[in-house]
């Protein structure tokens, strides 16, 4: 699949925003860092919303006809993208109400109610986004429960690390948050490794089943068009195998290994600088991961363009 930067930026950045907001609410409710002032919560919440918003704006760059974007609320019944859109919009009032309550009333039942509601919605949106991809039977690399798990974990991961930076900057205790982050990092890394292993196994349709000739080799003779088409541009994206492996290492290194090393203090004191580095590394690593998520996805239509398998 063609890795569109607008979409990658959207899923990574908005995902980080939702993750951040989720963890923020969780940290507050579970009292991970002692008491956090309403001001601090509100300002950190706003950062989360900014991330979400930046992501959402970016996602519209991907639309060829953004003036109809509003219509994407109409097909909630069947479309994950519609659901994502609806929730993404509903998310704003909920999160703003939550932050308003935090800001004006501090901790209260109502605040907690909205915090939980917001957090659940954040997770739901992460799942919706992932389900847009996971629901596509046409792309076996996406069509797996690992996809939503991965989206949720990576959203939380980057969100947690950004939050840790802000905690540290605000002088809040980051110890338990980093503990949580470490767990997410390890689980996310394992999920990703399982994923890479899983997509490495040949499966799914082949050029033979695509055309219905299953008893002999089938090869493309002529594709019937002179230059790139919408399909070859959108689905024909291909990177050299060696480069892919290399990028996988970079992504795992940046997204998981380096942050783990940094936040667990293996390289020495965990100061603000270390956390900034960890957050940036994770963000970059997840960005590469997301790029790979697209680049390694092989749409079945490629079979008609001559690919033997997806």
């Amino acid at each position: 699949m063609h890795p569109a930067i607008s979409v990658i930026f959207f899923t990574v950045t908005a995902g980080a925003g939702y993750g951040l907001l989720f963890i923020l609410a969780f940290a507050n409710l579970a009292n991970l860092s002692g008491s956090i002032s309403p001001d601090q919560i509100t300002s950190m919440g706003i950062v989360g919303l900014v991330l979400v918003t930046a992501g959402l704006i970016s996602s519209t760059f991907h639309l060829a006809n953004p003036k109809n974007a509003w219509r994407s609320f109409t097909r909630f019944k069947t479309s994950w993208l519609s659901r994502e859109a609806v929730f993404a919009v509903l998310f704003y009032p909920v999160s703003i109400i939550w932050l308003a309550f935090e800001f004006f009333t501090g901790n209260s039942t109502t605040t907690a109610f909205f915090a939980v509601l917001m957090a659940v919605m954040a997770l739901v949106i992460l799942v919706c986004t992932a389900m847009i991809y996971a629901s596509l039977k046409t792309i076996r690399q996406w069509h797996t429960p690992l996809t939503p798990v991965n989206y949720v974990l990576l959203g939380l991961l980057v969100g947690a690390l950004i939050l840790a930076v802000m905690f540290a900057q605000q002088g809040l205790d980051v110890g338990r948050l980093l503990g949580l982050a470490s767990v997410i990092l390890v689980v996310a890394a394992l999920v990703k490794i399982v994923y890479y292993y899983w997509i490495g196994q040949p499966a799914g349709p082949s050029i033979n089943t695509a055309l219905g000739f299953t008893r002999a080799t089938v090869k493309l003779l002529d594709v019937g068009h002179a230059s790139d088409t919408f399909h070859t541009k959108e689905f024909g994206f291909q990177v050299a195998r060696a480069k892919l492996i290399w990028l996988r290492f970079i992504s795992i290194g940046l997204a998981f290994v380096l942050p783990i090393v940094l936040v667990t203090g293996l390289l020495g004191n965990v100061g603000l600088g270390t956390l900034v580095l960890a957050a940036i590394s994770a963000y970059a690593g997840v960005f590469v991961e997301r790029w790979l998520f697209f680049a390694e996805a092989r749409h079945v239509v490629n079979l008609y363009h001559g690919a033997r398998r997806t």
């Binding site: 639309l63 003036k67 596509l136």
Partner: peptide, 20 residues
Amino acid sequence: SKCMGCNLCAWACPYGAREL
């Protein structure tokens, strides 16, 4: 008149039947 050009339907189509 309703399409926003998100390409998702083309992604969902196994047969390359949709073109933006």
